[in-house]
């Protein structure tokens, strides 16, 4: 006798079947009632196998280098022998309801790596920077045995902070020269930052990026301490620096 469908999915996930994982994520994202019911059953079945991965939430304005950053980090973790799942959220058109879902094409090396799984998903009109079912997708990836989950938000502004509700570490990517000191003090996204990365710190931009990182680091002191007593850090980063090394790390 055949097993119930949700248990077949759960077993498929546990055995690392990528196609099954992709289909399970599609079910969680579906608005069809039957799909939703099946998705909930699958989630219930796999929940005991979740929670073992580290969850990274990466956010920033459009064009700041989120995909590039994720690719570099993903390759680093793969080098360490860890499997990496990337959930890339893409904005949904409010006019046509479509999404490009093209972030995978920006992570060419990572998408070709057998240790990585990249899943672009539409934001489906949700405004917090993530999709309505990103949390569930993350749980499914964990159940499939992925050890590092990177959640890439849509390009955000100052108040899209929903990703902090589901990730362990909230990483905000910024660019140097994108405003004065007051920008760093504004409430909203800055209040939730665990690690602030001033990206594209290369070429003529290095000094400016270091100054920006210092300014942000000082600004981060103005916010009340978070519940977990972690002092947010501001660091510089570059993906085209030939040594791949950061010029500064302004830990305080």
């Amino acid at each position: 006798m055949n097993k119930p469908l949700h248990l077949q999915y759960a077993e498929g996930l546990r055995s690392g079947d990528r196609a099954m994982l992709a289909r399970a994520i599609t079910l969680t994202e579906s608005t069809n009632l039957e799909h939703r019911i099946l998705a909930e059953k699958i989630l219930e079945a796999v929940l005991p196998f979740t929670g073992k991965a580290i969850r990274l939430g990466i956010t920033g304005v459009p064009g700041v280098g989120k995909s590039t950053c994720i690719e570099q980090m993903g390759l680093h973790y793969i080098q360490q022998g860890k499997s990496v799942a990337v959930l890339a959220i893409d904005p949904t058109s409010t006019r046509t309801q479509g999404s490009i879902l093209g972030d995978k094409t920006r992570m060419t090396a990572l998408s070709a790596n057998p240790m990585a799984f990249i899943r672009p998903s539409p934001s489906t009109g949700v405004l917090g920077g993530i999709g309505a079912h990103t949390y569930e997708s993350m749980l499914l990836c964990e159940a499939a045995g992925f050890e590092v989950i990177c959640i890439e938000t849509v390009g955000v502004g100052q108040s899209e902070t929903d990703v902090q509700k589901l990730c362990d570490v909230f990483i905000l990517l910024m660019l140097a020269g994108a405003g004065d000191e007051l920008q760093g003090m504004k409430k909203g996204i800055m209040e939730w930052v665990d690690i602030l990365v001033v990206n594209k710190a290369d070429g003529a931009n290095i000094t400016q990026a270091e100054t920006a990182a210092n300014v942000y680091q000082q600004s981060l002191h103005w916010f009340p301490q978070n519940l977990y007593a972690w002092k947010p850090r501001a660091v510089c980063a570059s993906s085209i620096n030939p040594d791949g090394i950061f010029s500064s790390n302004t830990n305080h």
Partner: peptide
């Protein structure tokens, strides 16, 4: 190419 400072800070965080 590796985002060393970011990786290091993530490790410190965890």
């Amino acid at each position: 190419m590796v985002f060393l400072a970011v990786i290091q800070t993530i490790e410190n965080f965890f």
